[in-house]
Amino acid sequence: MHAKAGSIVARRPVQALLLRRAQNHSVTGDGLLHRRYARCHSTSSESRCTHSSSNNSSSLVQELMCGKGYSVLPGLVSADDVQKAKSIIVEHSESHSDKVTHFQGGQESRRLLQRRVWNLLNKGEVFERIVQLPRLMEAVGAFLGDQFCMGSVAANRILPGGPGQEPHIDYPYWDMHKPSSFPNNINASFPLNCQVTILLDEFTPQNGATAILPGSQVWCRYPQEGEEKMFFDKCERMVGKAGDGVIFFGLAWHCAMPNHSSRDRTGVLIQYLPKFVKPMEDQRAGVSQRVLERATPELKQLMGLTYPYPQVLDEAAAGNTEGRQL
């Protein structure tokens, strides 16, 4: 049977496989990582997975779910938009350098060498274009469902000497180091997150290209103390040229690495979520009226403007509004 990319039929084999494997996610260790990875990922021996065509959404979903957990999208953003985006980010990170950041505990003395710029939708039309690029919308829609939203769009600029981060997983999983706050039997059989990093500089091992542990997304847990050596011994690096994108499942263990070069390393971080997951940034309150007025239907969807919940149902218009037959 041929299934349309992203359809329920296409996803079922991946979900069934991951559900069986997720039931064992409490067992850890270096050997287990590679046994699981070898069982699931049998289609490629490349050290860096690349998807250059928009016609292979099904294989991309497979890669994110039970392959390496990430893929490079070459040439995603034009050189002109890369330059415009970087100029805006540098300006804001110089004038407003002290912002909330994450996963840098124990690095207070060098915290300002990693600079965040939040709420990029409100800082330039270039970011409105980037978050709704057709290649991204197709890929993320196949992974999260075609009514997905955007949880955040921000920048991370790591200056020379920047210390990098602790290995972690991303929102809404990012505090799974408190497992009692999560539902019973949560697992990786369906995704609640899709991350995209837009490279605004060439990412190299020298300047701190993001590290990621292939196959770790199936564990559905936060890295534990004492596992750093295994992570850094076995991780791969998200290397690429300016304008490339990297798409990954936020359950895969990853972290920014130290910048040992003499130049900045900057990326745009986009967090996409299923329509029902509460966004990390308040997209509705964080943008100007101008952004709302010129928003395309796709951007309105990403901002959560087309999804009607939550709402005060006691004040809603009478009538049936949900169900197969309206």
Rank of each mutant, 00 (worst) to 15 (best):
P134Q: 13
M137Y: 02
M137T: 15
M137A: 13
E138K: 15
E138N: 15
A142G: 15
L144K: 01
G145L: 07
Q147F: 13
C149Y: 11
C149W: 14
M150W: 00
G151Y: 13
V153M: 13
V153G: 10
A154Q: 14
R157C: 07
R157Y: 01
G164K: 11
I169T: 15
D170A: 12
D170S: 13
W174V: 13
M176N: 00
P179W: 01
S180C: 02
N185E: 01
A188N: 01
S189T: 11
F190K: 09
L192I: 09
I198N: 07
L199D: 12
E202D: 15
F203W: 12
P205T: 07
N207C: 01
L213A: 02
L213Q: 05
P214Y: 00
S216I: 10
S216F: 06
V218R: 12
C220T: 08
R221S: 04
Q224I: 09
G226T: 10
E227V: 05
M230A: 03
A242V: 00
G243W: 09
D244M: 10
V246K: 01
I247L: 15
F249P: 06
M257E: 15
M257L: 04
P258T: 03
P258H: 01
S261T: 08
R263S: 10
D264R: 04
R265C: 14
T266L: 05
T266Y: 05
